[in-house]
């Protein structure tokens, strides 16, 4: 059954990612990414990482992507128009990328094919995660929290209204405060 679950959600993730590429409107791209994140959360559950799976939903899908959608709505972002740059990318970049992917996949398939992963064999409990985070990784944790504080202040400073506010952005101030949410959530 877990093989079936893996394939269902892996397909969903890839479909979401492809849809992200195909769609022209930013809002559709953002929502496809939310679908990818949901599918990945299920895969994390299959890998026994409960805490990470739900934090993925809570922080990534529920906060970071809401922020993206919020900004898309705020700026009323229109479907993007093709330009010379994207044509060059299509001719050279995409084939190169496919080659890279094939190489990756070939390497991975030969290297790790005999290493099965079974659901429920190893469940990384929240307690272990906390222990590791606050003992072994205490310094990186603190450094990241400083990084966060800087990011928070920077975001507010950048998005805050200057002397003559453009009429198009009535909620600019509230958006800057909404921005800090994922940050705070992860730190605490």
């Amino acid at each position: 059954m877990q093989v079936a679950l893996f394939f269902i959600f892996a397909t969903l993730a890839v479909a979401g990612a492809v849809n992200l590429l195909v769609q022209r409107a930013p809002i559709n791209a953002a929502l496809s990414l939310v679908a990818v994140m949901g599918a990945l959360a299920v895969l994390y559950l299959l890998l026994g990482a409960e805490f990470i799976a739900f934090v993925q939903i809570l922080v990534y899908a529920g906060a970071i992507m809401v922020l993206f959608v919020f900004v898309i709505m705020l700026l009323n972002a229109q479907p993007d128009e093709a330009s010379h740059r994207s044509r060059v990318a299509r001719i050279i970049g995409v084939p190169a990328l496919v080659a890279l992917l094939v190489e990756f996949a070939g390497f991975l398939a030969t290297q790790f094919s005999d290493s099965p992963v079974r659901m429920g064999e190893y469940i990384s409990s929240t307690e272990d995660l906390g222990m590791a985070l606050f003992h072994q990784y205490l310094l990186p944790f603190e450094v990241t929290s400083v990084l966060f504080l800087v990011g928070l202040i920077g975001a507010v400073l950048l998005a805050a209204r200057r002397e003559d506010p453009p009429a198009a952005m009535p909620t600019a101030v509230s958006s800057s405060s909404a921005k800090t949410t994922p940050a705070e959530l992860v730190i605490r």
Binding site: G62, A63, V69, F70, S175, S177, A178, T181, E184, L185
Partner: peptide
């Protein structure tokens, strides 16, 4: 827009 910023903000206090 109001709903989004309100819910994202208060979710923080809730959590």
């Amino acid at each position: 827009l109001r709903g989004a910023s309100q819910m994202v903000s208060y979710e923080l206090a809730l959590g």
